[in-house]
Design a protein around this nucleic acid. Structure first.
Lengths: 148, 148
DNA sequence: ATCGTTGCAAAACCTTTGCACCAAT
DNA sequence: ATTGGTGCAAAGGTTTTGCAACGAT
């Protein structure tokens, strides 16, 4: 997974530096979106020190290469897991446990494009997040409250 | 338009103060998302002074009452123009001139819900922003570059 | 050796908090 | 008169900038 991203860096002419590898590793191991300072904190726990400015710049780069995404709802960063899959990359975010799943579907994109086309608007890309409950949390919720 | 919002404030038991009316007026006249400091600046140009903290608090309130929305991509605030219309409120944002249009469509919401249902995810609401070119900018773009 | 990257210091900017005062009801 | 709102001062957090030094190629 990290290896794929390193490939992208190389083929695009960007250097594969230690800081970039470290940020990749953190994003890869994360279960939730991380802020730049989150990343710095997690690295520090491993005895590694990265300047926050460096982290900002690396995240900018990763987002521009689609190696990472910035979530709309929280502003946190996550590693992209879809690679070059067609269609805009979207997220399901569980508002209970915070876990998140990335997905894409060209059909959805088309529907949205057609819809906005009625307003004479020419869509380039979509930012889209679905907020709700993941299967686990949905189950727990219903155990607690019985049925509601 | 502003009158409707004032109605909402009153019926919900919130006071209709001068600062709130001023912020409403600014949002109402704006063609693009505004930051709290943008609003302060615009008011100052009219010789009116509002503390930035006050503006933050007013915007928080407006968002909680759905009188305004905070755009997630840019962080700017816009007046809600859909009122209670069914379906999640979505935005088209022109990345050239910054103008924005709000819309909603229950069909889109359903499609997205059904799709995420395949992942055993239970969607509560959607966050969605379409980025592209408004009709004006699309035309200009094509005049400049001929055809591409 | 080179040029892209990083680290550092500093600044700018954004957002929040607590409390005293004010003003809409 | 009451109570919610506002202003102010201050603090805390986030993001950006410029430049010198470093290191991946």
């Amino acid at each position: 997974m990290v290896q794929d991203s390193i490939q992208v860096l190389q083929t695009q002419g960007y250097k594969v530096t230690k800081p970039r590898r470290q940020v990749l590793a953190i994003l890869n191991g994360a279960q939730r979106p991380l802020s730049p300072y989150d990343i710095q904190r997690l690295l520090r726990q491993q005895g590694k020190h990265l300047n926050h400015v460096t982290i900002y710049r690396i995240l900018d780069l990763f987002c521009s290469l689609n190696l990472a995404h910035k979530l709309l709802s929280t502003g946190g960063f996550v590693k992209c897991v879809l690679g070059d899959k067609e269609g805009c990359h979207r997220f399901m975010v569980c508002h209970r446990c915070g876990t998140l799943q990335e997905f894409a579907d060209e059909g959805l994109c088309q529907e949205e494009n057609e819809f906005t086309r009625n307003f004479d608007f020419h869509t380039k890309y979509h930012l889209s997040e679905s907020s709700g409950l993941c299967s686990n949390c949905y189950r727990k919720q219903h155990q607690k409250q019985g049925n509601a």
